[in-house]
Design a protein around this nucleic acid. Structure first.
Lengths: 377, 377
DNA sequence: TGTTAGCACTCTTCGGTGTCGAGTGCTAAC
DNA sequence: GTTAGCACTCGACACCGAAGAGTGCTAACA
């Protein structure tokens, strides 16, 4: 049936109901809607339309004599078709917040994951929701800029690698005591010369043999060093999960039941689940929105997650997800994630995209509508 | 008046009331106490004693016809004088838990603060309360074991320091481009020779001049390098706060009110406050217990904090605090903190104290009593 | 003198009842 | 197709009374 294609009035009413519900968290009645500006219908008409919308599955009623509440399907339509573009990007953080982005994101050296973490913190503050940052799995695509092996004491050394995105990694090397410090330095210099500019997985036996030849250290003697380098990279690849503003969940009345809140906070601590949750959504380069039961994790059925994946220079930095009740301020969350994308990309001065990033709206999920004045107070 | 010195029977009743209250969280009535084994008095007698204890400030009544609830003063006496030694140390973690200590605490190299963090996690799991780990301020007392300056690219280098407790620290050095990589290596070697074995604050102008002389780099040219070293140490000194098991707060019925829970969880996120809270208690080398209003932080008046400070080889590693409701299982918390102290000290093989640590009970706060069989089911 | 039994009293908890109001669905009129 | 009117439903809230836990006090007892 083509009945699923709503007419304009139904869409307007649905949007009004959802906007209202997002704001008040009260089931909204026909009278409330009919009183809105630019809503020129009587409560009775609205009632009929709302009954239709309920039949179609976009709204539901907590009990017979209550107003209507959006269903997951309703929210889906809302984020896909009903939110206007301006609502999404008409949004600017305060000066203070901008400063934070600068000091946080623009620091030019150090762990790249710091950037995502700071961004996550910012997003949590901007949206007043919990944000989850997942970094990592970028190691494979990054190149070695410099490396050094630092002798610590007999049998112990420290491998230090600087990657091309200025991340500094180190790992301890335990070697049998046959290599003296001077030799180790020579190994270090040669490895640096040979490996710089390459990705870690490009290191091959030829290179190792060449180092072996130049330094007089046997292949097996070199292995602990090579292992140390790999361990560095492994550290960088290790996905890190960072949650920001978890307590904010408690501000939302949907979690005023401690048991419920506890359940979700416990899920937040399950790093494996969070990685799945965020990563699963990060295939696309845009925003992905998961509403209520669309989340596969049990216990998140009353939550929505909006995820954005960030990459700079083609390097995947990580993803940030915003977690809140399904009754979430979607426009604001989308705006915040896109805003930070712009900053993050701009801060790293990727030529050609820095300024344009804000216009890169998520593909597919969002569509611009220019009809009726669906303004929201 | 010497009335504050309670007779044996009052103490027994007080302890019974507190034990009972800790277990059930119900105001405890005279009948309940009189039914306990080894409590050979009628409810009426108990009632009289309880009335006295209330008058003395050790108990209080939520309302006229309710049972009694311990006051902060009551808990104070409880932890100071009433808990038996066996209750405190008769406690062993499971095999799984022991493994965790081993893999976590015994890792022989890396950031020392990891140890405290793992210990904190363990304590939270053992006690089912929230634990707060504060590390740091140890940098000043640690010595440099090895250091290295790694050239990264023109104008940029990386300072790496290994301290005598095997902590590895690094910081980025930005220098004007007058020092070439070879010279930098020479500087590195000379600094390593001169500074190894010293504490960072022992580095003086004489040493720097000596490096300057040997390498031909001017004093001012060397300063960025020295600054980088200091920055490393600053990183180590930077107190880090790590909270474990914050969600567990929500398990306790005293925080079933979301507002209350939120308030405390927000406090937990305030690193500055947590550092104050934990550090303030860490002057002594034993356990410090702060009950309810004894905590200076407003909003923690219904909580107790038990803090232990850990040091190995005279080096202060940090402190761990356990945060829970005043109705906390003090014996268990004390046991857990002492148990971990033993492990932490043992793991680092401090001769002479490893085995004895468990007997080092906190000075002053705890006293052994051998009277009446105050057994607890 | 210390202990205990008995009893009246207090105060919370909880289930039941009644009212109020918001909101609906339906019908009939416009 | 829209709207006014009206009966109906159902949750929220306040009120009431019974039940029960626990107390303080008094008087009797060892």
């Amino acid at each position: 049936m083509a009945r699923d294609e709503l007419d304009e009035r139904k869409k307007r009413i649905l949007k009004a109901v959802i906007d209202e519900y997002i704001e008040t968290r009260e089931p909204v009645g026909s009278r409330t809607i009919s009183k809105l500006p630019d809503m020129d219908y009587s409560p009775a008409t609205i009632r009929n339309e709302m009954a239709d919308l309920e039949e179609l599955g976009y709204l539901s009623q907590p009990h017979t004599s209550a107003g209507r509440v959006p269903s997951d399907k309703g929210y889906r339509l809302y984020v896909d078709k009903l939110i206007k573009l301006e609502e999404k990007i008409g949004f600017e953080p305060t000066v203070k917040e901008l400063d934070d982005v600068k000091t946080g994101i623009q620091r030019d050296i150090g762990e790249m994951s710091d950037q995502i973490r700071v961004a996550s913190e910012l997003i949590s503050r901007l949206t007043e929701y919990t944000s989850i940052a997942v970094t990592g799995t970028a190691g494979g695509t990054r190149r070695i800029k410099a490396l050094q092996v630092v002798p610590i004491e007999p049998g112990k050394a420290l491998a230090v690698i600087v990657l091309d995105d200025d991340a500094v990694l180190n790992a301890v090397i335990q070697h049998d005591n046959t290599i003296g410090p001077e030799t180790l330095m020579k190994v270090s210099t040669h490895c640096n010369l040979l490996f710089a500019g390459h990705r870690i997985e490009e290191i091959n036996m030829n290179m190792i043999d060449s180092v072996s030849e130049a330094t007089g250290v046997s292949r097996t003697g070199l292995m602990p060093v090579i292992d140390g380098l790999f361990e560095c990279i492994k550290k960088a690849e290790n996905t890190e999960v960072h949650t920001e503003g978890a307590v904010k969940l408690l501000s939302h009345p949907e979690f005023s039941d401690v048991g419920k809140a506890k359940g979700i906070l416990e899920l937040l601590n399950r790093e494996d689940l969070m990685v799945d949750l965020i990563k699963e959504c990060s295939s696309s380069d845009g925003l992905v929105i998961r509403i209520g039961s669309e989340n596969k994790i049990e216990g998140l059925n009353e939550c929505s997650v909006v995820t954005a994946t960030y990459s700079v220079n083609g390097v995947n930095l990580g993803s940030i997800g915003v977690l809140g009740p399904t009754r979430m301020d979607y426009p604001r969350v989308i705006a915040a994630l896109e805003y930070v994308r712009k900053r993050l990309t701009g801060a790293n001065e990727l030529p050609g995209t820095a300024g344009a990033a804000v216009n890169e709206l998520p593909p597919g999920n969002i569509e611009v509508r220019n009809d009726g004045v669906l303004s929201k107070e």
